[in-house]
Design a protein around this nucleic acid. Structure first.
Lengths: 141, 141
DNA sequence: GTGATTGCAAAGCGTTTGCACCGTA
DNA sequence: TACGGTGCAAACGCTTTGCAATCAC
């Protein structure tokens, strides 16, 4: 749950891809890796500044971009806001989002295959990807 | 398919809700109601201008806002772009989006109920809403 | 006639870019 | 030392707002 290890592995992934490990970047990584909720760039900035006050918003954007590119972080789409980021998940998982506090959890839903095949047959589309997101209220809200 | 009737019913809905029927508004309604693909505000503007060249972009935004409020139109979220609009569907339907031409179709997928209940039991969340979108390539692409 | 609606221009906001300085490797 | 990374300020693009003129009812 608390994931110092996630912070470590993200930093390792950054290094492995030729990126340098800097204090500002580390602050951004920690802010996102340790959050249970999806955060937008301003929120990441605010949190990361607690550990690195000189941090500029621009660096947040640039670091999020790299983390997304490495699939360490993924974008969360909500009716109002499509610029929030959460720690990504290995493999194909779907999102369950608390409408109240923004807490995000993953679940697997592979029983979609049959549905997808039926839709392909009905419509003549070839389906390459799918999004399933559930919205609700988490146990703590 | 061609839907002059959809244009009519949207106009009726606007009137029924106390909105006036103006030429600019009519042009926007036609552009969206007649399109098979999701259009962003600039695209709506370009199309609607064919029938009403004086149309301002601002009116497009304001009209889309009203159409969305009346659930005649719904927003389509895509990885890159979350500001596109399509004609809405009665009842709960899901979206199938062509990644190539943007053509949008609806399908029903109520077999999600079992999955949703399982996730609720597993996580302690109360699920209030869900999004399911399939991405692929349509028969014509 | 009256009040909603329109288009223009300007403001607003979040995001991206240019650039000189800094810090990691 | 070299070059990637940083923060600041400015540019940018999309969206919203203020306002006087216009038009549906």
């Amino acid at each position: 749950m608390t994931t110092p290890s996630r912070v470590d592995s993200w930093q390792a992934a950054l290094r492995a891809n030729g990126y340098r490990l800097t204090a500002p970047r580390q602050a951004v990584v920690e802010a996102v890796a340790r959050s249970a909720q999806a955060l937008n760039p301003a929120e990441v900035h605010a949190r990361a500044r607690r550990t690195y006050p000189r941090l500029g918003l621009v660096t947040v954007y640039r670091t999020l971009e790299k983390l997304e590119e490495l699939h360490l972080v993924q974008r969360v789409h909500r009716p109002d806001n499509c610029q929030a980021f959460v720690a990504g998940m290995d493999g194909h998982q779907h999102l369950l989002i608390c409408q109240n506090c923004g807490r995000v959890r993953y679940f697997s839903g592979d029983q979609l295959e049959a549905l997808i095949r039926r839709v392909e047959a009905d419509t003549g589309y070839a389906v390459h990807d799918h999004w399933l997101q559930l919205f609700g209220e988490c146990g703590e809200c």
